[in-house]
């Protein structure tokens, strides 16, 4: 019997000291450094007269790029929420010279009956910094009382590169913004790629009183196509790409949906060619499909870098 004890001791010894190099915890690998945003929290609260306006965003923070927002209005006198009225929402950025611009946003917020909030979005094109200040303007009418308020907000850096955005001027001289919406947390897999494409609508008349929403109109473009060619830019990856990707086309939710396959974690460049509804190239160039080890991969004129 002693023999067997010894033997088991020997086995145990080997088993315990057995793993020299730890296995990669894959789930941790793809989640630790990619922040996932899943909870709406109050990002800013404004008290004005009898009203408290609370604007919620994911993680309670406004980030550069696409932000879904939820707005709640509470009457502090009656302690009741103000439901189903017209609410307007306008973000304005002011730079050092006093120039005022906006960003893609939902001007007329939509009241969600079952959830008691007004929903919309804003695609902030810059982070708040000493030279760029963001302000939110909110208007609504409560039983003939017109309420107009504004507040300064902080737009933070988006650390999750999978939600990056880019802005550019297209061949039609329009100003465009493409912002990634999903996946927040990509996998080495087929991922549904969702992006919003927005265009600045040039005002036809000059500004009356500030803020004049007609000067700050953006629209979600319709019927465009975003051709996709994802590649790994690292020189050692030699312009590596993946199979079975699908170009992004618009679905009913106004967003553009496609498929991107990531074959491994790391740096990826989403190379795009944007076509308008007539198939005309608005921006973007074909990239080489050659495998070029040791050479940093060339990017399209229109691209977004991601990392996971």
């Amino acid at each position: 019997m002693r023999v067997f004890n010894l033997l088991s001791a020997a086995f145990l010894f080997v088993a315990v000291t057995s793993c020299t190099l730890d296995k990669t915890d894959y789930e941790a690998e793809i989640s630790t450094e990619v922040t996932e945003y899943y909870e709406f929290k109050e990002a800013v609260a404004i008290n004005s007269g009898n009203y408290k306006i609370s604007i919620e965003a994911l993680n309670g923070t406004f980030y550069k790029g696409y932000n879904e927002i939820r707005l709640k209005i509470n009457n502090t006198q009656t302690n009741e929420s103000l439901n189903n009225v017209e609410v307007y929402f306008l973000p304005i950025k002011t730079n050092l010279n006093g120039n005022k611009t906006s960003c893609p946003h939902q001007y007329n917020l939509i009241y969600q009956n079952d959830k008691n909030y007004y929903s919309g979005y804003a695609v902030f094109t810059a982070e708040s910094n000493p030279s760029d200040e963001w302000q939110l303007y909110v208007y609504f009418t409560d039983s003939a009382e017109k309420v107009s308020i504004n507040t300064t907000i902080q737009v933070k850096q988006q650390s999750n590169k999978n939600l990056n955005m880019t802005s550019f001027v297209g061949s039609d001289n329009s100003e465009y913004i493409i912002s990634l919406v999903a996946p927040q947390k990509p996998k080495v897999a087929e991922n549904e790629l969702v992006a919003g494409i927005y265009r600045y609508v040039e005002p036809t008349n000059s500004s009356e009183t500030f803020p004049d929403p007609s000067q700050f109109t953006f629209e979600e473009v319709s019927g465009y196509t975003l051709q996709l060619d994802p590649r790994m830019p690292e020189p050692s990856m030699g312009n590596h790409s993946s199979p079975n990707n699908k170009d992004l086309v618009q679905l009913n939710d106004k967003f553009y949906h496609g498929v991107v396959n990531y074959t491994m974690t790391g740096n990826w460049t989403l190379n795009f060619i944007m076509l308008n509804e007539n198939g005309k190239i608005i921006k973007g160039t074909e990239v080489s499909k050659d495998f070029t080890p040791g050479v940093e991969g060339a990017k399209s004129e229109l691209f977004i870098d991601i990392l996971f």
Binding site: T24, Y26, E29, E234, S236, T263, M264, G266, N267
Partner: peptide, 12 residues
């Protein structure tokens, strides 16, 4: 990557 301080690339 050549710059070892950068993130590694991983796949099974």
């Amino acid at each position: 990557p050549q710059d070892r301080s950068k993130r590694t690339m991983f796949a099974y």
